[in-house]
Design a protein around this nucleic acid. Structure first.
Lengths: 184, 184
DNA sequence: TTGCAATTGATAATATTTTCACAATTACTC
DNA sequence: GAGTAATTGTGAAAATATTATCAATTGCAA
């Protein structure tokens, strides 16, 4: 069933989700209101939301709480709670300390690097492990999301290894294109 | 003329550009080779490239150098050399030091913040100015690209101000959606 | 309670984007 | 020099995605 949603709709769902969360309210919202806020067609919004299990009430709109849950369920976000950072350089470092992820209900569990100086230390309270141990940690904690902050030259290799460990989503901050199966 | 390129093509052009640059060679490349590397249809690649001024040679392909220039010209990248970072917190800080931008031929000129402790200092050799001075600096140096690394709560206001100063592109690292005119 | 206006959900029409098919060109091999 | 295979560029067809339209529902106000 997820296969016949337009990919463009799938790309828009996280946008709705993000917007709805900023509303921070308990009430109802109509497709028209979402459309105006995001500058889109209101029918398009309804179509997109219809792919999730969300149901609107005539003359009222969608329950904000239910809508958020429906989108999260559909996107499978609920499974993605813990993430790891790969590459504890400048950028990885900053992301570890950066508070921005809390908005996405993502918790950074650990970082990996292969610099012996960094391994074993903690950054922002999170342990830094040897990348060679990544498989153990990732499999044991069933981590599905990795944030890639490594140099371009090793990005593909790192991505391949992560996928091999069972990672399903990769947020790529390296300045190269990564090839992966469609499911990732 | 730029108006009747499919928006999806426009989104793909930077992908091609990035891939072509990783090749780091002087020769020729065919649309088929690009398509295979990026896992796309080869006709699609040709159609996309046709929107730029790039011309391929039958039985040879596109000159890598010319193709890169053509895409850059088309995207107007050549004008975007200098960028500023807005928000010198953890993330802005890291990006200032991060080497990844060199792949995009972007040079970070300065950072802005409104924390008096940071203003006047240098981070990674780049000056940190008061955000109130942003207009002066941006207009004087005709900066068109800004990287937004501020908390969600002030992101929209900062973006509005930047646009008012003449910034044409904003790379948004803040965890919210920013509204802006289509041209930005 | 009646009428009105807002809103969803669905179907049909339109627009956009991608793929197919193929002619034209040209490097390369024999 | 002739034949072959690779490659571009393009017009037509197919597939996708968006917008328009409208019936059905229902909260709200008089």
């Amino acid at each position: 069933m997820k296969s016949d949603i337009p990919v463009t709709s799938l790309q828009r769902l996280p946008v709705y989700l993000n917007y709805l969360k900023t509303l921070n309210s308990d009430g109802y919202i109509s497709s028209g209101a979402i459309a105006r806020a995001l500058d889109m067609g209101e029918v398009l919004v309804r179509k997109d939301l219809a792919y999730t299990s969300a149901q609107g009430r005539t003359r009222v709109g969608y329950s904000l709480k239910e809508l958020i849950s429906a989108i999260e369920d559909y996107l499978g976000c609920n499974d993605v709670k813990e993430a790891v950072i790969v590459g504890a350089g400048e950028l990885g470092n900053a992301l570890l300390s950066y508070g921005g992820f809390v908005n996405y209900v993502i918790e950074l569990a650990a970082a990996f690097d292969n610099d012996p100086v960094k391994i074993g230390k903690e950054i922002a309270g999170k342990p830094v492990y040897d990348f060679a141990e990544a498989e153990n940690v990732i499999k044991k904690r069933r981590i599905k999301l990795a944030v890639l902050c490594v140099p371009a030259s090793v990005a593909q290799a790192a991505a391949d290894k992560l996928i091999g460990c069972g990672v399903e989503r990769i947020l790529n901050f390296a300045p190269v294109l990564i090839k992966a199966a469609d499911s990732v």
